[in-house]
Amino acid sequence: MTRPVHRVAPATDTPVRQESLRAHNLSLTFRQIVGAAAPISRIELAVATGLTRPTISRIVDDLLAGGLIIEAGPARSGNSGRPRVGLTLAATGPAGLGLDIRVDTLSACVVDLTGAVRHLAFAPRPKTAAEALASLAEMGRAAMAAAAAEHLTVVGTTLAVPGPVEDGSIVRFAPVLGWRDVDAGAALRPALGPVTVDNDASLAALGELYASAPALRDFVCVSGEFDIGAGLVLGGALLRGARGWGGSLGHVAVDSDGPPCACGATGCLQHYAGLQQILPGAAPMPYSPAVAIDDLASAGNPEVLAALDRAGSALGVALSALINIIDVDTVLLGGSYSLLASWLIESVERELSRRVLTSGWAPVSVRPAPLGPDAAVMGAALSAIDQVRQDPNSWLARA
């Protein structure tokens, strides 16, 4: 006897209201302009979206009136015919503010809708969490004022931190900073409004994705300071994990009999590839440890050169395990590692060629990350503006 099949309608199977349809079409059209490598014409938008030309004209008029796009012609469709007016993103209007806290440095960055950096500032990091957050608040206010002077409105703020974050606000564990259960978002809110807090390695990968797209879609970006993180990008999308706590490459064990780590485990990558393990002696860390390491290596210091080789080998071991699972074709050495890439690449590649299963016919490319040490703060700023890039309706409602 055949049993009847009962089909359940999807939860999203609801009527589409006219205003929802308009908002959807506007977002669809705007994303075509965001993703275009050159100014795009109205006719090209109609072809790309499947919308009628009158609908495209109305949407373009709304985007022009809202200050999100400008006419930047001419754009030409095909090889003949009269040039058509091109449309591209405006360099004024909404902007994103990114903040970053590193071992020795605080930074603030503003990017406009095109992704261009309009403000970038640095300051030494105070020792305590309260002092560091107060300094970040002051830098954020100064960045907002600088943005306003260039006819930009900061629509969102994101803080990058070296550790796992809960609820987009609470830094659960950042051993390199000595932070545990610090509600950084709440501390910054009175001065800057709502602030999203996120992991620095993930934000650095996001920044590198923006800088490299569409050429690079599957990669791991290793951000090296004293806390080592990895941002994972698959199919052009940032991989965050179930709770957004992924990418703690520094706490992957490379030697089960190794020294104890602040995380509670032993033999973590941190203790073999962190900058503190590469610099010789017990002297206080210089303001720019990666620069100091590069100077010593360039001078032929045998202790530093040996430490760099050990660090690269340890990185290669940890990355091999990761790549065998997720299958990416590119490793970007970011953060301070970008400044030391020439000393690390050979030893990283040596381990990858030995340990990655597919290396015999599909070698993994290892190279410096284009944005380098500033990738996390730029990624934070891009993350803050991304809501407008994905859905411009919220901006148009307030314009």
Rank of each mutant, 00 (worst) to 15 (best):
N199H: 10
R82S: 14
A72C: 13
A213L: 15
W179Q: 09
V331F: 05
V252E: 13
R42V: 11
F122C: 10
A242H: 06
V171C: 11
V304R: 01
L279E: 00
S320Y: 07
T196V: 14
V16K: 00
D112W: 08
R58G: 13
S107N: 02
G73L: 05
E346P: 03
A205E: 05
R350Q: 13
P284K: 05
L136W: 05
I56H: 00
G93I: 03
A129I: 10
G267Q: 08
R240W: 03
V366E: 00
Y210M: 11
A108V: 00
G50M: 09
V60A: 03
P373L: 02
A132E: 01
V117Y: 01
G93Q: 07
V348P: 03
L269N: 03
R243E: 09
D198M: 10
L21T: 07
F173I: 10
P126W: 02
G231F: 02
P15G: 11
V233L: 06
V388N: 03
Y210S: 13
Y287L: 15
A283E: 15
A211D: 15
V5M: 13
G224Y: 10
I293W: 02
P368A: 08
P175S: 10
V356T: 06
A46Q: 11
L26Y: 09
S342Q: 12
C221N: 12
D13C: 08
Q277M: 12
A311G: 02
Q390V: 04
T49E: 03
S248W: 08
A307N: 14
S80E: 14
G250I: 10
Q32K: 14
A191Q: 07
R118D: 09
R58F: 07
G372Y: 07
A341C: 07
R350Y: 11
V317Y: 08
S107K: 08
R125I: 10
A299H: 13
M1V: 13
L68Y: 01
A242I: 01
A148L: 14
R354N: 11
A137K: 06
E131R: 12
V110K: 04
R82L: 15
G140P: 06
I278Y: 07
A187Y: 00
T49H: 03
V254Y: 09
R7N: 04
G140F: 05
L159G: 01
L188Y: 02
A230S: 08
Q277H: 14
G67K: 05
N25F: 15
V171N: 04
S256V: 15
A174T: 07
A46W: 01
L45T: 06
A116Y: 00
P194Y: 07
L382Q: 12
S212D: 12
S313K: 15
H271T: 09
D386R: 15
R82C: 05
S353W: 02
G274M: 04
M144T: 12
I278N: 05
I323Y: 06
A253K: 10
G168I: 12
A129R: 05
A237S: 11
G316N: 10
R22G: 11
L333D: 02
S77G: 11
P83W: 01
P39V: 05
A314E: 05
R76G: 05
D100K: 04
R355Y: 09
D200S: 12
L238S: 06
D227P: 03
S288K: 09
G66W: 04
A376T: 10
A215T: 14
D329S: 15
D104I: 13
S107F: 00
D255A: 11
D181A: 12
I293S: 01
E19I: 09
